[in-house]
Amino acid sequence: MTFEKFLFYVFSAILVFAATMVITRRNPVHSALFLVLAFFTSSILWMLLEAEFLAIVLVLVYVGAVMVLFLFVVMMLDIDQAAMRAGFIKMLPVGLLVAGIMAVEMFLVVGPKYFGLDKYAMPAPHPADYSNTEELGNVLYTIYMYPVEIASVILLVGIIAAIGLTLRRRPDNKRIDPALQVQVKKGPDRIRVVKMPAEKKMEAK
């Protein structure tokens, strides 16, 4: 067994363990953290496939951004565990049925008869100066130019829609406008001199 193969089995075992923990832990924060571990190990598996760009971007995007926001929400939740567990036995047959169908379907599509060394030749390892990033860039911005551009426009529309849905001005909101704040003049804007009649001095008794 080569060293790479050994690493593959070690990290695959960690990945499967982490993925199981995600769905079995009672505490949602623990589940989210095990999901982070799962992302990390799968990124290492991609690294073993010499896809270093995808591996690092997986960590950057999913671990560094998506899961942080996820964790934020999960931490502030107050989930009633008992209510979540209720009806587990009743739902179990349906769940097992769906899981079984999905497993069979996946086996049909990605079964061993489509893969293996007799179907595809063993890919030769790339030399040390091979840049996965450059290869990917060359392909993405030439052959797959339109799909990339269309996907990015769809994402942009998604961003605008998300902001548009949450953007609302409440009338009682005392928000501060920095543009107005910096325009304040030294004289009349800051101090208001109020004229008042002079008060009478108290007479000593």
Binding site: V36, E52, F53, I56, V57, V59, L60, V63, G64, A65, V68, L71, F72, M75, D129, Y130, S131, N132, T133, E134
Partner: peptide, 19 residues
């Protein structure tokens, strides 16, 4: 090759300790 990307990924992971 992807040194800058690696740095970016690691600095983004640092936030977990705090949270």
């Amino acid at each position: 090759n992807a040194g800058l990307l690696y740095l970016l990924a690691l600095t983004s992971v640092g936030v977990y300790g705090v949270i």
